[in-house]
């Protein structure tokens, strides 16, 4: 019996196996490089932000940046306190979440526990479309539709205000919250529902006492995602809330968010190397850190409430 191995036979010829394996390996390397693009993007984002911030914080002390109550980098006598931009971001996001979390959750409970599948099939695409509308269109809507409407109720409301921007942003975020929460609730096994129903609970009681707590991990991450969308949303606030940094928690006043400030500076002509150019990166880093904190909270919430069915 010859100790002949399959491959040793083919290596005598032009080795189709070798060529094939080389080709397979080459393809794998190309695919790997493609997959690395996303990691490279993250690294590049961090690098670019930190690089410009390095220059920025040589001009402006971090202490001043965090405590000064004025943000006037484009004035003759510039001040660089991030607080007014933070307050604008927090007020508009809080209003948005105040709308999106209750509406999104109720809609999700309704779709997951009450609606029949036919209604769900019709409604879900519409909610998806609501999430697909460009935000600049929502900005138009806030400025020229919602603000005039609110001014009828509150006559003293200025033309640019955080209330209207926040409300419209809430409308935009509602579909995200509802769709992710619904997914989480529908993943709860039917057995748990049946257990509750068999005890004589109504649908609402089952939904609130059994399904909602079981799906809390997914639901809370939908809230976090909504919050990070609100914080990063740009066009609605840039169009409807004004561009005037304003250290206030009053939603009826105008104010600028971090994102709106970046837009405002970018609309002008800023050259690299100037302090104006560096401010938008400092603002951007603050924004990234805020979303990072939200993501970490989300991660821990998801871990803390991990579903074990």
């Amino acid at each position: 019996m010859t100790q002949q191995v399959f491959s040793s036979v083919s290596t005598k010829k032009l080795s189709p196996k070798l060529i094939r394996n080389l080709k397979e390996k080459a393809i794998e390397i190309v695919l790997f490089i493609a997959a690395s693009t996303s990691v490279a993007t993250t690294l590049a984002i961090m690098f670019i932000l930190l690089e410009e911030c390095w220059f920025f914080f040589q001009e402006v002390s971090i202490f001043k940046f965090l405590t000064d109550t004025e943000w006037t980098p484009l004035f003759a006598n510039p001040r660089y306190g991030i607080l007014p931009l933070l307050s604008g971001t927090i007020v508009t996001s809080a209003i948005a979440l105040f709308v999106a979390i209750p509406c999104g959750t109720i809609a999700a409970i309704y779709l997951s526990e009450f609606a029949d599948s036919k209604l769900r099939e019709i409604v879900k695409p519409f909610l998806e479309l609501l999430a697909a509308i460009p935000t600049v269109v929502y900005g138009y809507f806030a400025l020229l539709f919602v603000t005039p409407f609110l001014q009828k109720i509150f006559p003293e409301l200025p033309g640019f205000n955080m209330l209207s921007a926040g409300l419209v942003m809430g409308l935009m975020i509602t579909p995200f919250v509802s769709s992710l929460s619904e997914d989480a609730m529908r993943a709860v096994p039917a057995l748990l529902r049946e257990g509750s129903t068999a005890m004589g609970a109504t649908k609402l009681q089952t939904a609130l006492r059994v399904v909602f707590p079981s799906a809390i991990s997914g639901i809370s991450s939908s809230y976090i995602l909504g919050a990070s969308r609100a914080v990063g949303e740009t066009m609605i606030v840039a169009v409807a809330a004004g561009l005037q940094p304003n250290l206030t928690l009053n939603p009826f006043s105008q104010g600028a968010t971090i994102t709106a400030f970046i837009v405002q500076v970018s609309l002008g002509d800023v050259a690299r190397g100037t302090i104006e150019y560096q401010t938008i990166f400092a603002a951007g880093l603050t924004l990234v850190l805020m979303t990072l904190v939200l993501n970490i909270i989300g991660y821990y919430l998801a871990k803390r409430f991990r579903e074990i069915y």
Binding site: T42, A44, L49, V231, G232, T234, T259, S266, F281
Partner: peptide, 16 residues
């Protein structure tokens, strides 16, 4: 995580 990065940050990346 990239899916959650605000879009304007991509703008800053591209600018730099």
């Amino acid at each position: 995580n990239l899916a959650g990065v605000p879009s304007i940050i991509y703008g800053l990346l591209a600018l730099g």
